[in-house]
Write a protein that binds this DNA or RNA. Structure first.
Lengths: 189, 189
DNA sequence: CTCGAACCGGAGTCACGAATCCGATTCTAT
DNA sequence: ATAGAATCGGATTCGTGACTCCGGTTCGAG
């Protein structure tokens, strides 16, 4: 693969992630190409289908997420790491709609195309969850399915909270539901 | 307004709600018309724009939601009523994507078109929340914005949980986050 | 340096879906 | 019962966006 081809492919992936994050996955391919600074032809050579491009973006995102989870799973304080991970993933969920859509589509992809990345995330997240539970930081009746669905929902919820402080409190509320016994309910940090 | 016109309008609204709930709001107008048993022309006479049709569906949904909240606000046990309301709205959120999208779009409409219904929901929900808090059933640092965002997020989350028991547990987790101190964490009812 | 292969770009094709138009078909007031 | 006004329905128009095609350009091995 030629050097310029690889560079363009990388640019396209980055641009796609940014554009889809900002405008939703119904943004046009042309816009992605423009944002990447390449022609449409180039986009379609690298990703023969829009769906294909979306899938690539999702996979990359999933891979990063799995990586983050894996790293945190071996942290000193697994409980704290667990909640930090969730807060991080939700709050900083790309810039906007990214993680939610990524996981939404991933829910489909897991069973179809991007099975590898899906499994990766499942394993890493499952590990993190299990350890956090064993450490007594998370109520024991929460399973991996609940956690993944909750992650999606939390991301969505945050999208609909404009103000920053509302977002923060929202994440706090959701995470508190995961604790074995309710934590401090202070409104200000 | 002629009787058949009114009847067709009602049919269209029902069909639209069902179709959009089942297939998302990107379903085609033709499909809605077919489901309603009328021609496309009829659809566009009643709702001159697809956006217009969507808005009508959302408004209707919001109105029903506000109505439900109002009724429960004067219940004997406001706390229980509060949680039942949320569980009901989330679980039975139309059949699929409805409430989430409805509220999502409503978030926009509230500031623009369907201001009336938006305010209605806000008031009713705010009332319900306040009373539930005063009754000590809901932690006091939760505001209306958090609650509405949480409603959206919870609906979304539930969508991504296929199994019925996962859904139930998920709702439980989310609602527990709203309690002043964690409730029972039993896995089975 | 040079040549061929691979890559780039964007004008053009094609399909799909929203919205229009008007002859055919009801309804309702008289 | 009947006129005529409003409504219905679907063939058609128009716009948008995914995807193709091919001449021009760029890379890199010899």
């Amino acid at each position: 693969m030629r050097a310029d081809a690889r560079r363009n492919r990388a640019r396209l992936l980055d641009a796609a992630e940014a554009v889809f994050a900002a405008k939703g996955s119904s943004a046009s391919t042309e816009e992605v190409a423009r944002a990447a600074g390449v022609g449409i032809g180039t986009l379609f050579r690298h990703f023969p289908t829009k769906e294909n491009l979306l899938e690539a973006v999702y996979r990359a995102r999933l891979r990063r997420m799995a990586e983050a989870a894996r790293q945190l799973a071996s942290s000193d304080d697994v409980g704290q790491a667990f909640f930090e991970f969730l807060a991080e993933q939700v709050a900083h969920s790309g810039t906007k709609i990214a993680v939610a859509d990524a996981l939404a589509e991933a829910g489909i992809d897991v069973r179809t195309a991007s099975a590898d990345e899906g499994r990766e995330v499942s394993e890493a997240l499952g590990m993190l969850l299990e350890r956090a539970q064993r450490a007594g930081a998370v109520r024991p009746d929460v399973g991996l399915p609940e956690l993944m669905a909750l992650l999606v929902g939390a991301s969505r919820a945050v999208e609909h909270a404009a103000a920053e402080d509302v977002r923060a409190r929202l994440v706090g509320i959701i995470l508190d539901g995961l604790r074995p016994t309710a934590g401090s309910h202070d409104r200000s940090p």
